[in-house]
Design a binder for these strands. Structure first.
Lengths: 347, 347
DNA sequence: TTGAAAGCGTTACCAA
DNA sequence: TTGGTAACGCTTTCAA
């Protein structure tokens, strides 16, 4: 234990100030640099005795390989780029954690790229960073597919929450989630539903709308949709008044963040949720459970999405083929909380 | 506009599949590789005519410098590591955005590292990633200073939300924020306050407690503190019952996420906020404004914190000296919302 | 199984 | 102002 006034003359670790290279290790171990490289990269390729000495020497000197040199010779940076529209949306920060966890297991680091919900920025950043990463995880891309196509040839890409053509992807069964929502609301007696949509380029958005339409049409009910709202809290507050101008008794938001914005504005205008209007979101972000009333939402498998996407990408990089192919669609499930209730039919 | 069935035979950009190096540019421009390097890195060092030809050639070939090679020769990766305890806490994702924005302006990318609130993981990750970045932004570090000291010698480090010895840092005036909170509550008539503390290693936590104690003592009131709660939503829910076991009429949480956990549990137990107990958080995360009741909280300058931290780090890397020194403490301010109200004095 | 040496793409020094 | 050239640290043939 060091005392408060201690200015620290002693260094705690053996970390050298000068950089120790593979040559230093080689010299200490009494072998060639080539053998050190082999002993460290593929231990099975050298004799146990040599391997031992190399590892001991490396440990003694506190050797850490220079990633830049490694990248230069192999062409691999051991970094993956995770591109998200907005890291402050809990859905994306949760996915980041899952991605980072899995990536680290495979010896990879994660370069996080926040595009600020802007398609142009997205394309731009992907282009300029393409050389710094071994591959991209494109999460909920906001750019139209044709802008991304060129990169698919040059760079390894896996999409998350987006079903592209001929791209490995991991998605959720949004259409089914939407169906669950619609049936829940219809069962509560609602006949006039509204959907506050997200970004046009989002395939999640399209699937959710599709699922909603199908179920609503089958029941002979009515669905109004408000298109292209910014998938943010402010987007939600702004949309609230538009929704209230219709006679809808239940509103489904593209995601929970929008839903919370709607909730806020409804409350501000004295519209009771769910007494006067029912509200549903998508994603089941943690905060959705802690509002008043707590938000009914469609949960998606965030952890598994992140981990599987990394697996797909590493397979791609290592030239492995997946038995089932690199496309996965995970089930979704509706979590009913306090923001949905029986329709009063008039508002 | 492409039709739906189009499988995309045309490539949109000029991006080459083969890698184009500085030599290719040199050949096309009719100069040496060295001149290309100069023309691109420091245009003033080369004659306008040459510069022109080089830039034209680079553009024509779609040249993008190889970062690994650059890093190998210069020792600079042009990446900065941002280390945070938990990226799902909105305070940290907001700071990330500010950091990324500023970093990009300076030509840097951001390697985000989530330590999962674990001090050991933090030390470990910083150690192993030290060679891949030019420097670290250590945000709200959870490891004790003595574990981080060794890195301060070997690596450029700026701390955020942490006042270390001899480390450039950008912090908020937490003690003053705490004072504002205490005076607000005292003015409302509260005499028995409780503080649900955060991580022991957090200097923010220490400062907040210190400010609270000073103000409470000055007024001759009472402060109970519950130490070392996990700074998470669950940490908050767990602490709620402990708080209710005391006679405190107002509770201050280390941060908003804890506060929301407290709020949830209070509500679940039928304790009215603020009728029976007042509640205050720190950080002013966006979600704090949308709960019911909305949360009174101490706002900090997230944007400026992130940007300034990057500035400090780049100064450090480029050997620049700041006129005012590389230490900045930003003001905080209390935002009163619905979760605080007059003390009823009995509970 | 091991060593020597070439090369990855860039920068920076030294001459010209 | 330019070009030649030697590094930077590592991997990977090719021989031994």
């Amino acid at each position: 234990m060091r005392r408060a006034g201690d200015t620290g003359g002693t260094v705690v670790t053996d970390e050298p100030v000068v950089t120790v290279t593979i040559k230093d290790v080689a010299r200490l171990a009494g072998v060639s640099p080539a053998s050190v490289s082999r002993a460290l990269a593929d231990p099975g390729q050298v004799r146990p005795g040599t391997r031992e000495r190399v590892h001991r020497a490396a440990a003694a000197l506190g050797y850490h390989p220079n990633q830049a040199a490694h990248a230069l010779t192999t062409g691999r940076t051991r970094m993956i780029g995770l591109v998200v529209p907005d890291i402050t949306n809990p859905i994306f920060s949760t996915i980041f954690q899952a991605v980072q966890g899995r990536a680290r297991e495979g010896g990879y680091s994660v370069l996080l790229v926040d595009t600020g919900e802007d398609p142009a920025t997205e394309v731009d950043l992907v282009r300029t960073l393409a050389r710094q990463v071994d591959g991209f995880l494109l999460c909920s891309p906001r750019a139209a597919q044709e802008y991304l196509d060129p990169f698919l040839r040059a760079t390894a890409v896996v999409t998350i929450n987006h079903r592209g053509r001929r791209v490995p992807c991991v998605t959720s069964d949004n259409a089914d989630g939407a169906r669950q929502v619609a049936e829940h609301l219809l069962a509560l007696g609602h006949r006039r539903l509204a959907y506050v949509a997200g970004p046009a380029a989002s395939s999640d958005n399209r699937e959710r709308l599709r699922g909603l339409r199908a179920a609503v049409a089958a029941a002979g009910a009515e669905l109004t949709d408000f298109t292209a709202v910014s998938p943010t809290y402010d987007g939600g507050t702004a949309a609230a008044d538009l929704v209230l101008a219709t006679s809808a008794t239940a509103v489904i938001a593209f995601n929970d963040v929008i839903a919370l914005g709607l909730l806020n504005r409804f409350t501000a205008r004295g519209i009771g949720v769910p007494q006067q209007i029912s509200l549903v979101g998508f994603d089941d972000i943690p905060f959705a459970a802690m509002t008043n009333p707590p938000l009914t939402s469609v949960a998606i498998a965030k952890q598994q999405i992140g981990r599987t996407a990394v697996d797909f990408l590493l397979d791609l990089l290592d030239g492995r083929q997946r038995p089932g192919g690199s496309r996965l669609m995970l089930p979704t499930h509706l979590i009913v909380r306090g923001s949905t209730g029986p329709s009063v039919l008039t508002r």
